[in-house]
Write a protein that binds this DNA or RNA. Structure first.
Lengths: 200, 200
DNA sequence: GTCTATAACGCGATAGAC
DNA sequence: GTCTATCGCGTTATAGAC
């Protein structure tokens, strides 16, 4: 197998540093230029090296962008998972919502990178199943609930995205208050008996 | 002024037909190729003419894409506005949610086009204020409510987007039931006294 | 191990024939 | 009014010098 596939622990310190540097440059470029506006030349320029040098450390431009995407995504899920695990099951949904909104508010460039990746060509068909972990957290908070937790999780995820997007366009927008409002709606929904509110 | 800026009523019938044809081709290409994957050559190919001919009818590629975007957006707001105006004020939010989800479900290519346009470079800073019409509908449904209707409108919009996106990835997903669940959550929130649920 | 030079291609847009 | 031919630029990726 090629050296590109070795475990990270086997990489030299200088190569790990280079990769980190390239990933950070890529995150910034994608954040305020979009995926399409991010070229090898600009990545190389920002990192202070040449295009060919970039392609020495990564096999292709797509690989650089993919690595950058994984980097920011890992940071997000690590923080949210820690917050949820530190909370009681009943307040798991609130911890999920508040920590995710907080993380995205604190790292706006990561946010742009993540949303860009979701729309992009490369990761077109992987987006599914994002709702599943949240549905499990909801289930743990309310084991006996009958209503559709998948749809509830989808609505919550969409609400979080929209709140964060609004803050991206209007930095004065109070995401903490918005998070509280979303938490209140979710807890009210979880307290209802679910389903009987929408007889068909 | 150039002929490009004449009113649509002054265009010849053949030119109007050509523009329609080009817009339809562009909607399809953007829908399943993304903005970046849509080139003048492909638009021309799908319409059966040449690149130069496309640029005769529109001043630039961006103008074609912008026209296509406006086309699908106008269709959406026309249907939603009609549904909301046909409903009692109290059921305005429900009409908004159901008609928008229904329209996007019925026109998946329009959906992709709209989401693509929101992310794209061209329309970067125009996205704001989307929540405002919905906030007015919410206000009309519940004039005395104290809580933050802007945030509620943002959450609803995000929920709608997420439901539609889920259906895009999983055609078996029941958007009508999801719409019902979202409507129930919103009506419950509007019935509460708003704000007292999240004392700070 | 890293860089220079360049290949090979697709892009949007234009000039000018017809 | 529509087409052919082409320009000039930016792109990813590679070959080979050092």
């Amino acid at each position: 197998m090629s050296r590109r596939e070795r475990a990270e622990s086997e990489l030299t310190l200088t190569e790990r540093a280079r990769r980190r540097q390239l990933i950070e440059a890529t995150v910034e470029l994608v954040a305020d230029g979009g995926y399409a506006g991010t070229s090898l030349a600009r990545i190389a320029e920002r990192a202070g090296i040449t295009k060919a040098a970039v392609l020495y450390h990564f096999p292709s431009k797509d690989a650089v962008v993919r690595a950058a995407h994984e980097h920011v995504l890992n940071a997000l899920v690590a923080e949210v998972a820690a917050a949820v695990e530190a909370a009681e099951p009943a307040s798991g949904p609130a911890a999920y919502i508040r920590s995710m909104i907080g993380h995205l508010r604190d790292h706006p460039r990561h946010t742009r990178m993540i949303t860009e990746a979701m729309t992009s060509e490369t990761a077109k068909h992987e987006s599914a199943e994002r709702w599943r972990p949240l549905a499990q957290i909801l289930e743990a908070a309310r084991p006996n609930r009958r209503a559709d937790l998948r749809t509830l999780a989808i609505i919550i995820s969409g609400g979080i995205d929209a709140i964060v997007a609004e803050q991206l366009g209007d930095p004065a927008y109070d995401t903490a208050a918005a998070a509280d409002q979303l938490v209140a709606m979710v807890e009210a929904e979880l307290s209802s008996d679910g389903g009987s509110a929408t007889p068909r």
